[in-house]
Design a binder for these strands. Sequence first.
DNA 1: ACGGTACGGTGAACACTGTTAGCGAGAGGG
DNA 2: CCCTCTCGCTAACAGTGTTCACCGTACCGT
Lengths: 229, 229
Amino acid sequence: MATRRERVRAETAAQIKDVARRHLVTGGPGAVSLRAIARDVGMTAPGLYRYFPSLDDLVRTLVGDLYDELDACLARARDALPAEAAGERAIAVCRAFRAWSVAHPAEFGLLFGSPPLSGDTGALGRQRLGGIFATLFADLWTRYRFPVPAGLDPGLAAQLDAWRASTGTAAPTGAIGVLLGGWVRVYGLVALEVFGHLRFVLPDPEPLFEETLREFAELLGIGEAYRRP
Amino acid sequence: MATRRERVRAETAAQIKDVARRHLVTGGPGAVSLRAIARDVGMTAPGLYRYFPSLDDLVRTLVGDLYDELDACLARARDALPAEAAGERAIAVCRAFRAWSVAHPAEFGLLFGSPPLSGDTGALGRQRLGGIFATLFADLWTRYRFPVPAGLDPGLAAQLDAWRASTGTAAPTGAIGVLLGGWVRVYGLVALEVFGHLRFVLPDPEPLFEETLREFAELLGIGEAYRRP
DNA sequence: ACGGTACGGTGAACACTGTTAGCGAGAGGG
DNA sequence: CCCTCTCGCTAACAGTGTTCACCGTACCGT
């Protein structure tokens, strides 16, 4: 199907994104320079414009690819466990999220550490990532029916209801609030760790992360699903 | 004491940082350009080198100033309430942190959304910010003696002990862990909100933030200290 | 009050950056 | 086999951070 031209074109495009990412991880976001990329690829700068309409566009598609990679990584961690073990699956996905983020701090900063760029290509990836957590939420609920607090703020309940309707999740409003709180904890801890804001309090945040997972499992009444890594 | 030269010098330095910050908030971190700043100040670019040894250094001192501003803001929120009301004080500081962050997203991104720069001038401000929360933690503990979970991971306990020793906080290890968990939740929620990663789930994160504060107050057994804003 | 000095600012220059325009060679498809 | 269209090139423009040599002027000590 793909003509030979198209194949080699896709290949060099992939190579361009590859060296762009290498520059990102070695020199930070400011080191992603069109001309430097072109040098490493073996081209001159204007040649890159045959593949990407601008540098911003290049990093945008790079962001999209990174979302894809993270999504795939989390999905793999989830599918490595049987579907019935919803609690173990959720814990595994959280661990995979932290592992990926710590292993790829520059990429994490690009995905989660800055306001989304204007021409937002990452929206799809972010939506798919939200989808992973949505199904995770639904599975947790259908499997365990953990206790949910009553008396939610009506404004909050309305927003959660709207999201539940848009995603078709089965869990009740309160459950979604509880699970969202868990995601906030996981993200907060990982972001603090990756950005180095915990370095002088916790040189190694891993035990606190595990403690957070364990506490959250117990909050859901599924403490037995938690096992030390 | 200050000679006339020193006064006018400090004044123009402040003006430079001022327009740098204005460029930051209007055009993002990439818009902080030496020559553009010089234009707005009414100088040529090399003139700025009489005040800052490099552009990186300028943004570093800007980061330091922003930490100072945030510190002062939080301290003001804390001191607006009587010292005995430790719970109300903690809640007020958390609200002030969110309010400042939401009102200054670009500055928040610079402070908390990227790995600390190499020549780290923000270390002092971050340490002072940590100090604010440390005294907050100590006050919460001496005032309420909330229940602390037993059976902490030994590796985690060792790190928390080291931090407690370095700051001279009075609270026991488990209490520090609980309070650190609260900070993780507050930071996580605020970062998610400021970076726009919650927009498609919660258009208005304020109710969830308030719910988080209320839950945490109840976790500490001081639910009566929480009042709707 | 005057002379020396150090400070603050300028213009030119260098090495970069992203981006556009125009051109040529070579591979692909008819 | 020839036409075409894609690809990569060079040249150029505007803008960036940074350094250098220079100069006027405000300050300071005598």
